[in-house]
Amino acid sequence: MATHLITGAGSGIGAAVARRLHARGDDLILIARDAARGKELTALFPGSRALVADLADPDRISWAFSHQPLPDRLDSLLHIAGVVDLGPVAELRPKTWHQQLNLNLIAPAELTRLMLPSLRVSRGQVVFVNSGAGLTAHAEWGAYAASKHGLRALADSLRAEEKPNGIRVTSVYPGRTATPMQAKVRSQEGESYDAADWIDPESVATTILMALDLPRDAEVNDLSVRPGR
């Protein structure tokens, strides 16, 4: 039975991945921003447990973990949580940049640093759910795309550094997916939102599980998932 630590398990792609792993009997550790949210998440996935840490404040993740038991071994660390806020560079204030860089890039880096000892024990895997914006930046996506381009660099560096320890590192780049984040993006773009227009989160979850379940003689480094219609 494998043990997975998941961020963003409350909705969208994170919830789809958590459901699939829970259904097959794996152990789940779910990151929650506070104790109340932790109770909600563990109620959704009976038998799971929560680690409380506010990813929006990465400077305090280490302090938060110092007050909670951490796993001795971890088979995978799945970075799926994210935040987006669009706007032209000419109008974006530092607060907007910090919010997206903190949650989308710095928190994954800090969480990875803290979990590496447990991942090394099991020669585990780190999965970064990135974005098409991590490959190409478009107008008004500057802050979000910068955070995701940085996430790609983090994954590439980590892969090279941890290969001697047997840790696999995968970046997944979903196109537009039917999630609450996508509904927010469409609103910011002044467009309507119809979930049927976008990738089903379950389809992205399938690609993530494929990377996790790949035999140890191979690894998926980068995986792009695009709408099929």
Rank of each mutant, 00 (worst) to 15 (best):
D34T: 10
N130C: 10
L55G: 00
A133S: 12
L30P: 04
L41H: 13
A56V: 05
S66H: 00
V126M: 11
L103Y: 02
G87H: 06
L105E: 00
D54I: 05
A50C: 06
I13S: 00
T136V: 13
L44G: 13
A145H: 00
M115A: 04
A18M: 08
K39Q: 14
S76G: 04
R19P: 04
A35C: 05
G38D: 05
R49P: 05
P69C: 04
A16G: 04
R120I: 13
V83E: 01
P58K: 06
H67A: 14
K39L: 07
G12S: 07
V84S: 05
A146S: 09
L41F: 12
G134E: 01
A137M: 07
Q99G: 03
L74Y: 08
E40T: 15
I61T: 04
A109E: 04
A36Q: 14
P108C: 02
T136H: 15
R93E: 15
G134I: 00
A137K: 04
G132S: 08
A43S: 05
R49A: 12
A56E: 06
N130R: 12
G124E: 03
P88Q: 08
V127S: 07
A143C: 03
A50R: 05
A9S: 14
G82H: 02
L78S: 11
Q99L: 12
A145L: 02
S131E: 10
G87C: 13
F65K: 00
L70W: 02
L28M: 08
R24T: 11
R152L: 15
Q99V: 12
R37W: 09
L70N: 07
S131P: 14
H98T: 11
V127Y: 01
L151G: 07
V83N: 09
Q125E: 14
D54P: 00
M115T: 01
G8Y: 00
A133C: 14
T42H: 10
E91N: 13
H79C: 11
V121P: 02
W97L: 06
S11I: 05
Y144I: 12
W141C: 11
W141S: 06
S147G: 13
W97K: 01
G150D: 10
L74H: 02
R93W: 02
A107K: 02
S122D: 08
L103T: 04
A43R: 09
R24S: 04
W141M: 07
L44M: 07
D27V: 05
P46Y: 01
F65P: 02
S62R: 14
I61E: 06
R19A: 10
L116S: 07
R123Y: 05
L151A: 11
I80G: 08
L21A: 12
V17R: 02
S131Y: 15
L105Q: 00
A90Y: 03
P94A: 12
W141F: 13
L30N: 08
Y144E: 11
A23F: 14
G150N: 10
A9E: 03
T96K: 15
H67Y: 09
G142D: 06
V83A: 14
